[in-house]
Design a protein around this nucleic acid. Sequence first.
DNA 1: TATGAATGAGCGTTCATTCAT
DNA 2: CATGAATGAACGCTCATTCAT
Lengths: 216, 216, 216, 216
Amino acid sequence: MSAPKSSPKSNGAGAVDDDLTRRRRKEISLGACAVFDERGYANTRIADISDRLGIGQGTIYRYFTGKDDLMDHIIDHGVRRILAAMREDPAVATDAVSTGAQFADQITTVAHRLLEMAAQEQALMRVLLIHAPAARPDAIDELTDQLAAATAAYLDVGVENGYLRTGLNTMAVADALTGVTLAAIRRVLRGQLDATARESTAHAIGDFVASGAVNA
Amino acid sequence: MSAPKSSPKSNGAGAVDDDLTRRRRKEISLGACAVFDERGYANTRIADISDRLGIGQGTIYRYFTGKDDLMDHIIDHGVRRILAAMREDPAVATDAVSTGAQFADQITTVAHRLLEMAAQEQALMRVLLIHAPAARPDAIDELTDQLAAATAAYLDVGVENGYLRTGLNTMAVADALTGVTLAAIRRVLRGQLDATARESTAHAIGDFVASGAVNA
Amino acid sequence: MSAPKSSPKSNGAGAVDDDLTRRRRKEISLGACAVFDERGYANTRIADISDRLGIGQGTIYRYFTGKDDLMDHIIDHGVRRILAAMREDPAVATDAVSTGAQFADQITTVAHRLLEMAAQEQALMRVLLIHAPAARPDAIDELTDQLAAATAAYLDVGVENGYLRTGLNTMAVADALTGVTLAAIRRVLRGQLDATARESTAHAIGDFVASGAVNA
Amino acid sequence: MSAPKSSPKSNGAGAVDDDLTRRRRKEISLGACAVFDERGYANTRIADISDRLGIGQGTIYRYFTGKDDLMDHIIDHGVRRILAAMREDPAVATDAVSTGAQFADQITTVAHRLLEMAAQEQALMRVLLIHAPAARPDAIDELTDQLAAATAAYLDVGVENGYLRTGLNTMAVADALTGVTLAAIRRVLRGQLDATARESTAHAIGDFVASGAVNA
DNA sequence: TATGAATGAGCGTTCATTCAT
DNA sequence: CATGAATGAACGCTCATTCAT
């Protein structure tokens, strides 16, 4: 969530340079992410990253201030991806929902989009879920708080509008929603859910969140 | 899950010595856990631990083979605590449940017990949830798998006995259950749930898992 | 006798780089040899070596895998020097000898060459004779065996060709030859033999080996 | 050659105590010698020694001031054994020799006695020849000097009395004698000479020293 | 701009020595 | 006297970072 902490030597100049620079930063942070995923943050040496990218160690320091900055950047990127996956679809808006069934569909939709993103960005998500909490507890706490608050607000609307139970502990259920989704994402990251399973899992999540497990 | 990897010189005999040894190991692993929690595993120096305990660095090596062993031991201990919290109560047995309401109660009970344990063992649980995944991904994966499998089996019984929905994706819901609980535990660990809130949260979890969020 | 166990990153290419690397390794191993000689292997800290060379400790690890590797390399080098001193002169070949006097001359020649080498490579030889046996007993045993076997074979030719006594215990005399030479080398290493004394000692060795001490 | 540097807490008392103390010191130094031989001085931990003896680590410090003192004592003991082996036999006196044959016999006798001692005190001799030079270069130099000087003096008598060559480089030959003997001792220590071989080797040494290798 | 050799602070671990029992 | 648990100084090695080319 924080702004990038570094930028190369200051290219006061053109959009071209900026673009090149942005591309380079992306490349490097992508490579770093892959290695952090494979070896863990603490066990990753700068040389591991530069080796994988086929560049010199020093080059990394031209685009990032250090190992920490690299991790910060990756977390930042991951957080943006998650938030985007939850918000980018115009269909996901509280005013588009007015029944329990629509609510379940929306949960299913968002869950599915998150699972797909996890499937496509496995390294990034693994770093975010496994390594970032240890390396940057505060950043992850911040993310968690944001997600929970946003989700709780989203649920509050449902209660107000009558399609969610009156008296629902929305904070607890917000945690539940994030927890349920995280658990599924973890399974995706462990390679245990193919595309079909991701779809059915998303539906199971939507149904479960809406109606619970008990036989009515 | 693995057996402790070290023990001091193995004094073949006396219960007294064994007891002293066990106490010493417990003390040290407790101190280490506290420091790992505060500083993270990678940032903790052996000297940090010995300083906090008021002992020499070398003493730690009389009871553990090294920093790794210390972490392994802590994880092992934490895993046992979690499994115990889920199983130790005789009331938690599938044959004690035959209705959806009983199911919800049981979920509430277990969730509450886990939240209480988290409240009492904050450092241990924080190390387990935040630092262990980065330091020992495999150990945590193993734990996750075990919990999910046990939970899914537990849900399967409910489906068979008719108090859970036919066709329930028990694996997905098992993940949901663990995810929901973990999310609440995380909140406990962030100091955001006092005793009262823990109780109501446990109930909210039980209700939610049983009946979902939607207004029937 | 073993090949050097490490080499810097292996820059697949340029003769220049390889050469620089080789020079650097030589420098470092030379400095290490000097310090090992002065303080003994066990008492030498890596920092002692890097300090003497005016480089950082880490630099040493770019060229050698560790303290052990450094010692191995030094021993290897020393062994090659000794073997070279014994073999490199074309005049030292069994087929160049057919009389006792020629035999004595040859012994004198080799002894002299070894004494000169010892005088020029005092640190290396002291490490090899004093510190290496304690640090690498097997490497030294191997060297000793090789020298003894080669020497015995050399003497066997002399017996066959009739200029050495029939029934000579060639193994015992081979040991004697190496022992005699080693004793003289040790004196060189203790600074007790100047160039003149080395020459006369070499002659004394040749005469003694050929004819013994007793008045004929 | 130096006096023992420590003594247990000062038992101002009886001969009995002194005797017990002496026995204990002997036991410990014997055990230490065995371990030094097996693992080398630098690689031997005090605990290795106390373990082998079945005593506590602290006990060693009641009889020796430390690891160094232990080594000093062992060297001292070894030096005394060597000197004794060379001198204790009344037959070995320069006035008992007046011919070259008697000289050869005497060399044979002393060599044999040294080889037998080496065979019986393998650990002690290995420590003295292999580990002591690295650990106590000065002590070994001192021993070497003493032996060489004594041997040279012995040879000088032979020259004066006419049974050794006039103009003999007695210092060089003294070195030769010690070198020859050491080489044979080394072979004994490597387990390559049984009792019979030791006898014939002693004779080979006597003959070689007296008459050399060349066919007269 | 890119490089990678050089650096040295920092840390896990060992083990000789001490001393309370 | 004997013990062995406790100690902490010491050291080999790693690796993030720098900077001359």
